[in-house]
Design a protein around this nucleic acid. Structure first.
Lengths: 158, 158
DNA sequence: GGTGAAAGAAATAGGTT
DNA sequence: AACCTATTTCTTTCACC
């Protein structure tokens, strides 16, 4: 599944992760190439799914979304029906930014972004009313000390 | 600190979160306006820091970064010196995608993206050799069931 | 806030090594 | 097969209404 990328592909990805609004000319300059090959490589990486999409990152605090919780979920039900329903609830809730199924005694972790603690409680009540959950621990973030979408390409090399 | 945004600003942000490569014409069409006001609003929101940057989101699995850990950190040291050093280590490590200081008995949570469990161990050994840490629990993600950078603008409204 | 023209960038075609 | 040059088309930017 891992796409084979050469050094130039990685440099292009690094530039696009840093700033997706760079012009082809500027990217070409940075990777010591010219527009056409860079354009072809980007197109290929979009088609192959290495580049998922390009997005504007917003400041949650500036938008008034001042609370962030990590939610540790334990369940006693592990059948497909329950899991499907749980997944559907997570997908339908825009305040759930991330959800992972875990190995070990905690079953799921969620990252939830809301306006305040009250809004989190509204989410929590909705969640437990829609699916049976054995145990929930909410970790409240006091400070986001690092937040990046930039994947470490250097560590990805084969 | 929360910027005041009207309905049109929010619609523009929604479009840009979904696809930052949309043309001004297309965004203007979607928000039932024309290029100039949309362009001015985007510029204002960039200047005011509501829009942080635009980035290409990549597929971590396709790049061979197949392991994701959430790391719960407890420390016994809470002085500024320790905290500064810890922060510096997190910032310098590209595999740390997120780090939050928490309320409650767990002090920090990290999200760490690496190639495999061995690469995580390398990171872990480096971390504990650079700063004193009382207790670490690593939660291994088996499956990313949701992952979005799209903030819920509807829930952000005053 | 709208219009439109000038500048700039993206997308593609055709030729080159 | 990958790159370079040139052309067309689309987009951004900005002065003016």
């Amino acid at each position: 599944m891992a796409a084979r990328l050469d050094e130039m592909d990685r440099k292009i990805l690094a530039a696009l992760q840093e700033d997706a609004s760079l012009s082809l000319d500027e990217i070409a300059r940075r990777v010591s190439s010219s527009k056409t090959p860079v354009w072809n490589r980007i197109r290929r990486m979009k088609e192959s799914g290495v580049i998922l999409r390009t997005t504007a990152l917003l400041d949650a605090e500036a938008l008034g979304l001042e609370a962030c919780f990590f939610v540790l979920v334990r369940t006693s039900e592990h059948d497909a029906g329950w899991q499907g329903k749980f997944l559907q609830v997570l997908q339908s809730r825009p305040e759930v930014l991330e959800a992972h199924r875990l190995a070990g005694d905690i079953d799921y972790i969620l990252k939830v972004r809301v306006k305040n603690a009250r809004a989190y409680d509204t989410f929590y009540q909705a969640l437990i009313s829609e699916v049976r959950i054995y145990n929930v621990t909410a970790l409240l973030s006091m400070e986001e000390i690092k937040s990046t979408t930039i994947l470490p390409l250097a560590l990805a090399a084969d």
